[in-house]
């Protein structure tokens, strides 16, 4: 892998949860993303995947750990100033196509917002850029005059993508960009993101709960559970030979359009509360293979093959 444009090292996020209590939403998360590549980040609710994505772009400050973007360390002392120098090179695409656009703002102004914030864009250039961006995401130029409510969910997601592209970023965090869309719209947006990546050499952190969608988007995939990465590998390795029992269970339960398939029985139990984190492996209480040491000793994320890491005592 070439030098990463994005790297996270030991990221931790604690949220206050009442007096003298904190909730550890993200625990010791590390990964790298190279230029033009996608890391898929999969997990269920409470896995900390979305919090991780937000920490990466400075929407949520990290409690500890380090984020480097384009060679700049943007966490810690003086991090904000360094983040400002790379701000224009990163962007974010949100999940909710309703909430991510200001209902009182015309599409033109929504898309041009990053340009307006950066400043120094002439009016004519701004209009030309908006038209260009609308074309890039496959919306008619006439959309510029309209308000978000006049568009369908899929079209609104295209508007959100156009906004993210306004300053020609090199890296975009996509936080569940297709989860709220109808099936027939999901595929369109996935293809659009792939086309844009090919055309502009974009790097993505693609956050999702759907392993099938992640497979179609990502070069590398990380699986999160209860705040930590439990397995990270190339797409080929992860889908062909998943190592962590959680990844295996997750792959087993994805509903497939095949009436003859017999699914394995569902995994019992639920994600543990982050307030009463169990000792040892967080997955142990649901794990069909758990042994005594799993409930005592927290497994470290370690190499099990080249480029394939898993946090499990049993692999």
């Amino acid at each position: 892998m070439s030098a990463p444009i994005v790297s996270a090292r030991g990221l931790v996020k604690d949220f206050p949860a009442g007096p003298d209590r904190t909730l550890r939403a993200v625990d010791n998360v590390s990964f790298d993303i190279a230029a033009g590549e996608t890391l898929g980040l999969v997990g269920e609710s409470g896995s900390g995947k979305s919090t991780t994505g937000r920490m990466l772009v400075g929407l949520i400050p990290a409690t500890s750990g380090e984020v480097s973007l384009f060679g700049q360390t943007v966490t810690g002392r003086g991090g904000d100033a360094r983040l400002a120098t790379v701000r224009n090179r990163l962007q974010f695409v949100f999940q909710d196509p309703n909430g991510s656009l200001n209902p009182r703002m015309r599409v033109r102004d929504a898309i041009a917002e990053p340009l307006d914030i950066k400043g120094d864009v002439a009016r004519a250039d701004r209009a030309a850029r908006v038209a260009e961006l609308l074309d890039m995401v496959g919306l008619p130029a006439a959309s510029a005059d309209r308000y978000p409510h006049e568009f369908s969910g899929g079209q609104r997601q295209r508007i959100g993508i156009a906004r993210a592209l306004a300053l020609r970023p090199e890296f975009i965090v996509c936080d569940e960009p297709v989860s709220a869309l109808d099936v027939s719209m999901q595929a369109q947006i996935v293809n659009l993101l792939l086309d844009l990546q090919e055309r502009f050499g974009l790097g993505y952190l693609f956050i999702a709960h759907d392993l099938a969608v992640v497979r179609s988007m990502s070069r590398n995939v990380a699986v999160m559970y209860a705040g930590s990465i439990v397995e990270i590998a190339s797409r080929q390795a992860l889908y062909a030979a998943p190592q962590h029992p959680y990844t295996q269970a997750l792959l087993d339960v994805v509903p497939r359009p095949d009436p003859d398939r017999v699914r394995k029985p569902a995994l019992a139990g639920e994600v543990p509360s982050m307030l009463n984190r169990p000792a040892g492996c967080a997955f142990a209480m649901r794990c069909p293979r758990a042994e005594a040491r799993c409930r005592v000793e927290t497994p470290a994320l370690r190499d099990i093959a080249a480029g394939h890491r898993a946090a499990c005592h049993l692999v």
Partner: peptide, 26 residues
């Protein structure tokens, strides 16, 4: 708390801009 405010923050919007363009109109 809505995501379009986060979108503006990702692009580096100032508090004044967030108030004027996003909070007030809504």
């Amino acid at each position: 708390e809505l995501e379009f405010v986060d979108a503006a923050r990702v692009s580096g919007a100032s508090s004044l801009r967030i108030i004027w363009k996003h909070l007030l109109p809504n």
